[in-house]
Amino acid sequence: MSDATAPHPFDDALELERLSPGTYIGRTSAPYNNMVGPFGGLTAATFIRAIERHPDRLGDPISLTINFAGPVAEGEFEITTRAVRTNRSNQHWYLELSQNGEIATTATAVFGKRRETWDDDEATAPAAPAPSELELGGFPEFIAWARNYEMRFAAGALSEEKSEDSTITLWVRDTPSRPLDFASLTSIADIFYPRVFQRLGTYVPAGTISLTIHYFATAEDLKTQADSYVLAHAQSRRFHKGYFDQSAELWGSDEKLLATSHQVVYYKV
């Protein structure tokens, strides 16, 4: 029987120790390891959590761009956060993650307050069967971080067969169940395995260089979502000379767009 009072593994992995305002010590988490180093989605989520803990933070996430400059080694790391400008309704941040005095990851973020404005939805959620109609799937056992997510694929499940299409669509949520917040939404934005694996039907060296997330969800939207499944959808547009792109959408259970993401990934074939 699980201990209901114990921290969720995701929150445990995001634990930060404050050294001074804006400077934190964190530690990598074995349950969220990737094939090399920690899961990039967790690193991105750690940046969001660091800003959320800053005493001068204004509002909630609007966008995050994270650049993976080098590998993050297992063990302790330091995150520094700095608000470079605060306006009346938004705030701009610069962040660094370093180990042994060497920068491994940098990021910029925009936080802000949402206002009541004219609204419209041009995007529509991709068609997908209900989660209950899809079998439980996932990634190979050696990809540790994937075991922290319940995945039900409507399209693009990892396969050893080549595909002419890079599109992937799946329902996903944390396991054990956990209410969605901005940190977990950030992590889910990087849930997709490299699109080149799908196209070639095999593993090749690949890794994200830069990831940008745009947030549309408000805190109220996330409260409505609670621990329901997120519908995650992504595809690439071109694989060319060692790099490919990926554009993704994250939809709530009420078919409202929660976030979009865009990334560039290197690969070797």
Results as ranks from 00 to 15, higher is better:
1 M>V: 05
2 S>Q: 03
9 P>S: 04
11 D>H: 09
16 L>E: 04
22 G>C: 00
25 I>M: 10
27 R>C: 07
28 T>M: 09
34 N>Y: 06
34 N>E: 07
36 V>H: 14
37 G>T: 00
39 F>A: 03
40 G>H: 09
43 T>A: 07
49 R>H: 11
50 A>F: 07
54 H>R: 07
59 G>V: 09
61 P>Y: 12
64 L>T: 10
65 T>P: 09
69 A>H: 12
72 V>Q: 14
73 A>M: 13
74 E>T: 15
77 F>T: 03
87 N>W: 15
89 S>F: 15
94 Y>T: 14
96 E>T: 14
99 Q>P: 03
106 T>Y: 04
111 F>K: 03
113 K>F: 08
113 K>T: 14
117 T>V: 14
122 E>G: 10
125 A>V: 13
127 A>I: 13
140 P>V: 10
141 E>W: 04
142 F>Q: 11
143 I>C: 10
144 A>M: 09
144 A>E: 11
146 A>Y: 05
148 N>L: 03
149 Y>R: 05
149 Y>L: 13
151 M>N: 02
152 R>W: 01
156 G>V: 05
159 S>D: 11
163 S>Q: 10
164 E>P: 05
165 D>N: 08
165 D>S: 03
169 T>A: 01
169 T>E: 01
171 W>C: 07
176 P>Q: 04
181 D>P: 06
181 D>E: 08
184 S>C: 00
185 L>D: 04
186 T>R: 01
186 T>C: 07
191 I>C: 03
192 F>T: 01
195 R>A: 03
199 R>D: 00
202 T>D: 01
214 H>F: 13
215 Y>K: 08
221 D>W: 01
225 Q>W: 00
226 A>P: 00
228 S>R: 12
229 Y>F: 07
232 A>M: 02
233 H>N: 09
233 H>I: 00
240 H>V: 04
242 G>C: 07
243 Y>V: 11
243 Y>G: 05
246 Q>V: 12
247 S>P: 03
250 L>K: 10
256 K>C: 13
259 A>E: 13
260 T>R: 15
262 H>D: 14
267 Y>G: 10
267 Y>P: 05
